[in-house]
Design a protein around this nucleic acid. Sequence first.
RNA 1: GUGGAUGUAGCUCAAUGGUAGAGCCCCGGCUUGUGAUGCCGGUGGUUGAGGGUUCGAGUCCCUUCAUCCACCCCA
Length: 420
Amino acid sequence: MAAKQLQSIRGIHDGLPSEVRLWQRVEQAARNTFARYAFSEVRLPVLEPTELFVRSIGEATDIVSKEMYAFTDQGNDSICLRPEGTAGSVRAYLQGGLTRAGVQRWFYIGPMFRRERPQKGRLRQFQQIGVEMFGAHGPLEDAEVLAMAHGFLSELGIAGLHLEINSLGCAACRPAYRDALVAYLNQRTESLCGTCNDRLDKNPMRILDCKNANCQSELSGAPEMVDSLCDDCETHFSGLKAGLSALDVPYRINARIVRGLDYYNRTAFEIVTDQLGSQGTVLAGGRYDGLVSELGGPPTSAIGFAAGLERLGMLLADQADPEEAVSLVDIAMVALGESTLIYSMQQAAKLRAAGFRVVHGGGGSAKRQFKVADREGARFVVVIGEDEMQSGRLTLKTMASGEQQQLDMEELIQLIHQAS
RNA sequence: GUGGAUGUAGCUCAAUGGUAGAGCCCCGGCUUGUGAUGCCGGUGGUUGAGGGUUCGAGUCCCUUCAUCCACCCCA
């Protein structure tokens, strides 16, 4: 490493070809699945006014209070790199005048930014695949959104994923539950860890998902939100469970699921894995019926989720069959002798026009060009030397078998098409 | 933000304070028209960076940067 070697910013990584290929598989599964549920892609700004997140996520959250990349620009405006996608989606929904356009079903794929201490699966710039649905309030919509999330990950074929659901209640029933929880925990403060004692004042619900074993054992007899739901929330939650069962989506109830962000109510869910250490949440979301009006719009129900693209990519890489190396090249051109270079390039162009993926070996020794062909994973090599140029025919070598034959361009295209 | 581990060739890793190495990769050769196995040869390092101790530092000390782990947070 040279002393002046430039490197990327801490926690901000490059997506090199092998990783991007994984991401694209994830994205493809998302696009396929979401399209079947009639969701449309939106592309929203990476830069937003800082105030948007202060008002939506909540000033007290870590994300807003210490993790945002916020700064004032040359015009003295306070702007920031988006730390998540929901707030911007709501902003765009309102700004686009879509509140009377019927149910909106959106998804997006893009980078988010949080200045956290980096870890594997936790980057400062990371990518999320997110989904937001506006204007649908019923439990059946919740069930369909969860089924869509489940279908998306099922299509990727990642093993060991579990859907966990909970209800966070609403403004009518949560305050009473929160008080009951605090009352319960106040009798056990000496057994709780330091951070949980802090949380007791600031955000008692957060104690529910503390990782400390002592705290968890203290919680075994704690009141649970799902037992304290008001009638409306209870009806909603049972409707969700019935919907999931009807759609054969496996789930389990986890009363310890809470949300870090203030705007969630009722349905909360996560899809988790035990393969990624402490960053095991691969997809998470929930209902946020209060946010649209919070940001100045009419009362509008909404539900959404976000999945971490890098985390899913890692899971895909872990289970990848090393034998299953995907070939990215159909044909490698081998040009023998200076005089054949131009001609071979023209033949390569014809093969590309026929739809094949072609690399040109670049001339030089036959040995070198065949090595290149092999390394690129080409299934076929087209050899062009003086002889071929004279006769107008091509030598085709099938790399797997080593067989070689002389063909004209038409026959060759035919043959490779058949072999595909 | 707190605590801890680790940084040596492109990659994976060696090297009691005493001449920086191996495997893989890459490049070339084994009658310049034939790859994946074999044989031979070669390129490639200010040991992450910067200081210090020492006759001498990859090795000990300090600083700094990055990665990883746990906490925290969260996708």
